[in-house]
């Protein structure tokens, strides 16, 4: 048995942790939305500015989950937390920016090219936390709970003791990021099953007023 012990949603204008709003986009701000959250939450990780949107979203959501659940850093060995992510458009937004660099801006940009793979966000999270665990990035037509349920159970039956899972879809102006932490042992937490995963995934649809 395993449990969903923390989760974070990021949409184009709101950021929620465990279903509660922690940040709202200020449309008058000069800063991009992810940068607003970064500043507001007082993160200090200058590399953030170099990341593409997928990695920025992964950084913010995973750090917010760590704040909600500090035990994640201390309770596990450096290879016991698996990263299982998926989305629909792979790295299409950054791919397009890289294409623009050589079609319109005169030269292919190395710093864009290195982000033209969807799994780079897993690398960024692993580097930041010094996590040497299992990695998986899948591309699916939509959020498929069974994929996360099956694959998380598989890895948790091996040497992983927790999994940080994520649906991370960012394209155009649409942002749909949902990260959740699954742990083998927890008290007073939601059991990790289809029903609860759907419930938690959809929580942002009816924000707490």
């Amino acid at each position: 048995m395993s449990f969903i012990t923390a989760y974070c949603h990021l949409t184009k204008d709101t950021c929620y942790v465990d279903g509660e709003i922690i940040s709202k986009r200020d449309i008058d701000s000069e800063d991009a939305w992810f940068k607003q959250i970064y500043k507001e939450q007082e993160f200090v990780y200058p590399k953030f500015y170099k990341m593409d949107m997928l990695s920025q979203a992964g950084f913010l959501a995973s750090e917010l989950i760590k704040r909600a659940k500090p035990g994640i850093v201390t309770n596990y060995g450096d290879d016991e937390i698996a990263l299982i992510f998926a989305n629909k458009s792979a790295s299409a937004a950054t791919d397009q920016r890289f294409i623009n660099s050589y079609e319109k801006n005169g030269s292919p940009s190395p710093s864009l090219f290195v982000y033209t793979l969807p799994n780079i966000v897993l690398g960024e999270i692993a580097i930041l936390n010094k996590w040497y665990g299992e990695n998986m990035f899948a591309v699916l037509p939509n959020f498929v709970p069974d994929f996360f349920l099956n694959y998380t159970q598989i890895l948790l039956s091996g040497s992983s003791k927790a999994a940080l899972c994520g649906w991370l879809e960012i394209l155009g102006n649409e942002i749909d990021a949902f990260l959740f932490l699954v742990e083998k042992e927890a008290s007073n937490a939601l059991q990790f099953n289809h029903e609860n995963l759907m419930k938690v995934a959809g929580q942002k649809e009816s924000p707490i007023s």
Partner: peptide, 9 residues
């Protein structure tokens, strides 16, 4: 190292 390549660009 990636910034170094951007400086070449």
């Amino acid at each position: 190292s990636i910034d170094a390549l951007e400086l070449i660009v």
